[in-house]
Design a binder for these strands. Structure first.
Lengths: 133, 133
DNA sequence: CCGACTGTCACGCAGCGTGAATGTAG
DNA sequence: TCTACATTCACGCTGCGTGACAGTCG
């Protein structure tokens, strides 16, 4: 645990479950920039930064691009800060609908995956097993 | 429906739900080669070919590489044809285990996805709605 | 001063999407 | 002959993995 509640990348990677490369990549594309750096150039992440990374990780299965996620994080931030033309809410609602669709597609994929897993298991155990004993 | 129970790519794409590009790509990498061609060079897929494509599509959520899938399809074919050193079964069993693991990971992802979707929906409907009327 | 950690390039890779220009089927 | 469908390049893109080489922290 670094000074002033700031954490360096390795620590964050362990905590959140993302690779160093991924976290660095998220900075490159402006998705989750560290809120600080040490004199020598080490990235320093605040607790909110870490939360942000966690949210991104959670959001990943929805299949949004990193750019879209950045957009969403922005909207979420502005959604509380008032100054909503309502536009913010509208766009969030669109993303929410999209997310719901992706969820059902994910469910379908899970069903396919399970079917396939079952098939593989069955084929791997078929007609040979009579353990011969 | 083409002659002799053979189907051309567009038909197959519609039936299976894969893009032309994807189907062609699967041939490029040797995953699902069409079992024939017309004089002029049009790909012709037999019904078993189509089943193969369907299986691949079903298997996709498991996250195997195209190469691994080709391997698996080969094993499945040899699993019935006898001549099993038992090796075929063993490898299938390994893939089955892998598949089962991937399934639980998929379930986790689905859970994350749903959580996120719920969050987005809530944020998009929070505290503003008093439709002002 | 050493070892663990981190930094920046920069290339590689899978799995297609997306034209462009051309040929085939019927 | 016309038109819908198909063919082969071949480059583009996302999201990192994977070194290589060098500097920083404690």
């Amino acid at each position: 645990v670094g000074r002033r509640g700031m954490h360096q990348i390795g620590e964050v990677a362990d905590a959140v479950g993302l690779s160093l490369r991924t976290i660095r990549h998220y900075e490159e594309v402006g998705l989750v920039p560290p809120s600080g750096r040490t004199e020598g150039g080490f990235r320093l992440y605040s607790d909110p930064d870490v939360d942000r990374l966690r949210l991104v990780k959670q959001m990943k299965p929805l299949g949004f691009t990193l750019e879209e996620m950045a957009d969403i994080l922005g909207l979420l931030a502005r959604a509380g800060d008032d100054a909503d033309t309502g536009d913010t809410r509208d766009r969030l609602a669109m993303y929410a609908s999209l997310a719901e669709e992706r969820c059902t597609r994910l469910r379908d994929k899970l069903a396919d995956a399970q079917q396939t897993a079952t098939l593989l298991r069955r084929e791997s155990e078929a007609s040979v097993p009579p353990v011969r004993r």
